[in-house]
Design a protein around this nucleic acid. Structure first.
Lengths: 112, 112
DNA sequence: CTTATATACATAAATAATTTAGGTATGTTT
DNA sequence: AAACATACCTAAATTATTTATGTATATAAG
């Protein structure tokens, strides 16, 4: 995530959102997906991603399935039931955040 | 800023934006303005605000003028020339951030 | 064949932004 | 007299991240 300081705090939300659309993904796949969708503008660093995935797993938000492909390991993550609920609330938080930024940055909207 | 983790990294941008619309403001006024505009949803904590103001001042982005009002101190901050340039780039960064979040969260937009 | 690049995981130390929890002091309202 | 609002401040702890490594296999390029 080595671009803008603004991304701080959004990593978990991004992971959850991607997993709500794709059933299961592994870490490296997530970095590539994000890089692709943002045309290279947002690069999730591994040092941020793996600890974040481990934390979400420890919280019971994600569950993991290890698969060996081409003699290399992949750890597929998917949302648990708790994770689906958590995703909804994280997405609501993001929407709130963006709305608040809009009223701060386009004061017209805030006036009524 | 004791609401959502998402605000991390946006505090300086918020301060600069407010000062680009209002010439000069003091710390407490900034907290009240933000609280008002966001209907109480975003509360900047003093522990975040004051160090942020001091840092921006140290960087030459803000300049300060101390005024005594009703026997109480107020430190008015305003943008320097450097600060005006910095504001433009911070706002551009925020727009980039929001665009990237849109392609991540509304994948339709990313497809062409 | 050997070097570079891509795939795939991981962790530890350092940095940065913030929260939490204090502290000082004056003015106003109950 | 107490509570609340105004107005500043800082230090310790927490948290998320960057930066810098490390391991290992597969594939492409020279």
């Amino acid at each position: 995530m080595s671009n803008s300081k603004l991304y701080k705090g959004s990593l978990a939300t991004i992971i959850l959102k991607l997993l709500s659309q794709q059933d299961k993904m592994y870490g490296y796949e997530i970095t590539q997906k994000v890089k692709g969708l943002t045309k290279g503008e947002l690069n999730i660093t591994e040092g941020a991603l793996y600890p974040a995935l481990h934390k979400l797993e420890a919280e019971g938000v994600l569950e993991v399935e290890v698969v060996r492909v081409d003699n290399r390991l992949r750890k597929y993550y998917k949302l648990t039931e708790k994770g689906k609920i958590e995703t909804v609330s994280k997405l609501a938080e993001l929407e709130e955040y963006i709305k608040n930024m809009q009223v701060l940055f386009n004061p017209k909207f805030g006036l009524e």
